[in-house]
């Protein structure tokens, strides 16, 4: 468990504040509802507030239609958490991407997470036209150009520039393994300042991916936030490994989950998650974790407490 994670402070708020203070960052994923229910997000945020530094609002995750990430981010903000707005290239061309980025800045969204997005054939509208006018790297590059150069892709000048923190994603476990760290380095050259990774279940493979990034100083310029989450059932395990692209669960974890009776899988899955967080927090170059709990936001405080990575800033018990 990391020393920095245990430092309790009344610190600057949000993701940016936590990174600036050098605290061990905790973020959580918040999927917007499939309807216009404004309370759904407020409830999730209520469970997370005080336990995470920011809530990451997904953009039609998996190619399934939800409330827009921009609207979701505003609702997260209203409910009292710092949103990280995800934006994908799947559904928007370069005009829409830039206008949404500008709109997010105008509405006070301080962090954006820019990605290519899943292909629509994997989602609930497989008959949709895939856009992919830009790719994820180009979108990061575009965002940095808007903010730092103050120009659009067209070269036209912006008046008031956006000021969000720019994030990206990477999957340390997908082939070609050797290219993955270099691909993140490219995204950092494009302008990424933090990266959220795919689910980590294999800490050794993650450490192998991280090492060259640390050696070449990439982790100094881009905060690595490792994706984690509990496997709650055998069904979820087979869903994650069979249906969701790009998730790697090593044999050792599969064996652990197979070795307990079905009713204890949830408990064992959470233990695996907590141990993974502890191992990640001990790795040099990991700045935080991103929790993916799929609607079980109420479990976040327990996971965070058990992993000993943070004291609650409001409400909860002291860590450890």
């Amino acid at each position: 468990m990391s020393e920095s994670g245990l430092k309790a402070r009344t610190a600057a708020s949000g993701l940016r504040g936590a990174l600036a203070d050098g605290r061990f960052v905790v973020t959580a994923e918040v999927a917007p509802p499939r309807d216009a229910d404004t309370e759904a997000i407020a409830r999730k945020v209520g469970a997370l507030r005080g336990w995470v530094d920011a809530a990451n609002v997904t953009d039609n995750q998996g190619g399934n239609v939800r409330m827009s990430s921009l609207a979701g981010s505003i609702l997260v903000q209203r409910a009292g958490l710092d949103p990280v707005m995800q934006l994908t290239c799947r559904d928007r061309n370069r005009l829409a991407l830039q206008s949404d980025l500008i709109g997010a800045a105008a509405l006070g969204i301080r962090n954006v997470l820019l990605l290519t997005g899943d292909h629509p054939t994997l989602g609930d509208h497989p008959d949709a036209k895939p856009v992919f006018d830009l790719d994820g790297v180009q979108l990061v590059w575009t965002a940095r150009t808007l903010r730092d150069e103050g120009t659009l892709l067209s070269g036209k000048r912006l008046g008031v520039r956006p000021s969000w923190l720019i994030g990206t994603v990477e999957n340390p476990f997908a082939p070609p393994a050797e290219l993955r760290a270099r691909r993140l380095a490219k995204k950092v050259a494009a302008g990424a300042e933090f990266v959220q990774t795919q689910y980590v279940f294999d800490v050794d493979a993650f450490a192998r991916w991280l090492r060259p990034l640390r050696d070449e100083g990439v982790t100094e310029r881009c905060a690595v936030i490792a994706g984690v989450g509990p496997i709650r059932s055998r069904r979820m395990l087979s869903f994650l490994t069979g249906t969701v692209p790009g998730i790697h669960v090593p044999e050792s974890v599969r064996r652990r989950l197979a070795g307990v009776p079905e009713q204890r899988v949830e408990e064992e899955g959470r233990r695996v998650c907590v141990e993974t967080i502890e191992a990640l927090a001990a790795l040099d170059g990991v700045r935080g974790v991103h929790l993916m709990v799929f609607g079980h936001e109420d479990e976040v405080p327990d996971i965070v407490r058990q992993a000993g990575i943070r004291q609650a800033t409001k409400g909860g018990d002291d860590a450890d």
């Binding site: 292909h119 790719d135 691909r183 790009g246």
Partner: peptide
């Protein structure tokens, strides 16, 4: 996805 800058994260 017509990615010009390298593979996506969904490669099996």
């Amino acid at each position: 996805k017509q990615l010009r800058n390298g593979p996506c994260g969904g490669v099996s």
